[in-house]
Each structure stands twice: as C-alpha cells, then as structure tokens.
C-alpha cells in the first residue's frame, strides 16, 4: 500500500501537466485554425522569416 503514497501524486501531476498543456494551447489560439496548421507545415517557399506567433 505504501506505493500509493507516490503513485497517486504521480498520476495527479502527470494529468495536471496534460491539463496545463491543453490550457496553454487553448490560450495561445491553437484551436482557432485547425486546418491551416497542417498546410503550413508542408509549405516551404520563401526565405523570409516566419511571422511572430500571435
């Protein structure tokens, strides 16, 4: 039973990290354009630097 002492906090921390990652993605607008990102990844013309992320 002593394993519970660290297993449960582990589970909570890991899923908490997942939640934080999700909220970060949401707040940085990554769910605003679900189609564009896939296309941008394979688009490689132009030498100009990428625009700053907004």
């Amino acid at each position: 039973m002593s394993a519970l002492g660290w297993l449960i906090p582990c589970a909570l921390v890991l899923s908490g990290m997942g939640l934080i990652a999700f909220l970060w993605a949401l707040n940085s607008g990554q769910f605003k354009d679900l189609d564009g990102a896939g296309w941008r990844a394979i688009q490689d013309d132009g030498d100009e630097p990428l625009p700053p992320e907004r």
């Binding site: 354009d33 189609d35 013309d45 132009g46 625009p51 700053p52 907004r54």
Partner: peptide, 21 residues
C-alpha cells in the same frame, strides 16, 4: 502562402495571418 505574401508586400502592412478554417 500567396495571400500572406501578397499582403505583407503591400505598403503599410505590418503583418498578415491567415485562418484557413
């Protein structure tokens, strides 16, 4: 790419960002 490039080359434009969805 075309839309963003065209707009960025227009005088006075600071930034252009497409939302495809």
């Amino acid at each position: 790419a075309t839309v963003e490039r065209t707009l960025r080359r227009t005088v006075g434009v600071k930034d252009a960002r497409v939302n495809l969805s």
